[in-house]
């Protein structure tokens, strides 16, 4: 009883936060709401008996958010005296896309045969580590390579000017190469 009460309260807060992420006009506020959503999701993982996942969620995703915020502030234009505003005029396509994604995911979730509620004790970090390096080793390594490829891709995209005709790099003008 208490557990489901906490669950619904938590879920409500997560949804509220998620709505605020897209509805906030101030970029920094939006990103902060995203951080709130991610932290609450970590709490959700904790409730579902996955403390390791909760810790990793905090360490990686919220850590990623702060970077996102920095880039958001550095790379976007300032419209007002304070803050960076975000808004989009294409609301209908956005809503349709969101609905389509929601439909697809809901469909997939309802069709999968999931265990009702985790009845077992929390999964220890040791078990997860073992599983990664034995049963799921290939998937784990493939994911690592995928991440590495994404990272290299980002670097290549970011430094495109180095490969093009015009070497118009910002920091090469200033000082040392």
């Amino acid at each position: 009883m208490t557990e489901s009460l906490i669950f619904f309260a938590l879920a409500a807060f997560i949804l509220l936060g998620a709505v605020r992420v897209v509805a906030s006009r101030d970029l920094v506020h939006a990103v902060l709401w995203l951080a709130v959503v991610l932290v609450l999701t970590a709490v959700m993982f904790l409730m579902l008996g996955a403390p390791f996942l909760a810790g990793v969620q905090l360490l990686l995703y919220t850590g990623g958010v702060i970077t996102l915020m920095l880039f958001g502030v550095m790379l976007t234009r300032r419209h007002h005296e304070i803050g960076v505003e975000v808004d989009s005029s294409r609301r209908l396509p956005g809503a349709l896309g969101a609905l389509a994604l929601f439909g697809a995911m809901a469909c997939a979730i309802f069709r999968t045969d999931l265990p009702a509620w985790p009845s077992s004790a929390p999964v220890s970090a040791l078990e997860i580590g073992r599983a990664f390096l034995t049963d799921h080793l290939i998937a784990f390594e493939v994911l690592s390579i995928l991440l590495l490829a994404a990272m290299i891709g980002a670097i290549v995209l970011g430094r495109q000017s180095d490969f093009g005709d015009e070497p118009e790099t910002v920091y090469r003008k200033g000082g040392r190469p």
Binding site: L32, V56, L58, I66, L70, V73
Partner: peptide, 28 residues
Amino acid sequence: DLDIGVLFMLAVGGLVVFPVWIAGWSSN
């Protein structure tokens, strides 16, 4: 005495950068 003690320490310790950033940004 959490099973993920060190991970918790690193994860929550890493969150401290948020309020510090907010303090600086919100000061305008």
